[in-house]
């Protein structure tokens, strides 16, 4: 035992501390970031900031159209991506479990998850804005975001479907239920909380996306609310980007306040997801 002297023990302790530091320091930086943003934001935050249109005067400029745009975007994105994503997950888990097609789709989804979001923007620009003729509209933006988060929704839904025990499916089949009857009335009700939680987190991710919306053509200076799916739009991250890129320093405060609203929205979505999960977990006997 001559190698594990006191020196060895000290070195090991130091190394453990170093490793712990590697976890703590980035988290500390994140806290500093949030504190910094918050301290900049307080000067702008308030009811007026939420209900005002953008303005050339920093002190008067607000996030109203951007906030409304983000809400619209998230609802439309959810409406598009949830049925498609859950449908794909059902197909992969319940119909095609081991087929070659399922493998291909699976591989493809894994690859899509690694495609940079700005490229989804190019897809939206080429496909939805130009070829499908949607123009630089709310619908084009939402459709782009829907494709972007589709892999997340599919993966979360498959995870949730996998938690439903095989014995329940068998019980249903033994009663003479068809595959769809089994899925619709036995599998989906049980997987629902998991699917919901995963989907809300996916939408939260979409809410924070900036680059694809810029490429699709979200506006940066909007003095009206979108009144239809075909209307031009803006969103919170776009508005923040606009403010942070301005040379005048006072707009930085608006950007900070915008960030607080954005993070607050995402936090609310995440909290809702956690709340729903806990609520339904208690109800699953």
């Amino acid at each position: 035992m001559k190698h594990t002297g006191r020196r060895g023990v000290v070195i090991e302790r130091l190394f453990v501390a170093l490793c712990l530091g590697a976890v703590i320091v980035p988290l500390g930086l994140l806290l500093i970031l949030f504190a910094d943003v918050l301290s900049d934001a307080v000067q702008r935050l308030g009811w007026a900031f939420l209900t005002s249109f953008p303005s050339r005067k920093a002190a008067l400029a607000g996030v109203y159209p951007a906030f409304v745009g983000t809400l619209y975007l998230s609802f439309i994105t959810a409406g598009l991506t949830l049925p498609l994503g859950v449908g794909a997950a059902i197909y992969l888990e319940e119909y095609e479990r081991r087929g070659r097609l399922a493998n291909l789709i699976e591989l493809n989804i894994a690859n899509l998850a690694g495609v940079p979001s700005v490229i989804y923007g190019l897809l939206g620009l080429g496909l939805f804005v130009r070829i499908a003729g949607m123009g630089r509209s709310l619908l084009a933006g939402a459709a782009t975001l829907a494709l972007l988060v589709l892999p997340i929704v599919i993966m979360a839904s498959r995870e949730a479907l996998r938690t439903v025990p095989l014995s329940l499916r068998e019980g249903s089949y033994a009663l003479g239920a068809t595959r769809w009857q089994t899925i619709r009335q036995v599998v989906l009700p049980m997987a629902f909380p998991g699917i919901l939680t995963g989907s809300i987190l996916a939408i939260s991710r979409a809410v924070g996306e900036t680059a694809p919306l810029i490429v699709v053509g979200a506006l940066t200076y909007v003095t009206f609310l979108p009144d239809s799916l075909g209307a031009p739009f803006t969103a919170l991250p776009i508005q923040i980007f606009n403010w942070v890129s301005r040379p005048q320093a006072e707009f930085v405060l608006n950007a900070a306040a915008g960030i607080v609203v954005l993070l607050g929205t995402m936090l609310a979505l995440n909290a809702a997801a956690i709340f729903l999960r806990n609520r339904y977990q208690k109800r699953t006997y």
Partner: peptide, 26 residues
């Protein structure tokens, strides 16, 4: 009909709904 090794009532359903599940499912 079939009864399994481990009782597998549908957890999301009440007693009544479990009994009627076969008819309702189909």
């Amino acid at each position: 009909g079939m009864v399994f090794q481990k009782p597998n009532p549908f957890p999301s359903m009440s007693i009544r709904d479990n009994v009627l599940a076969g008819l309702r499912l189909t």
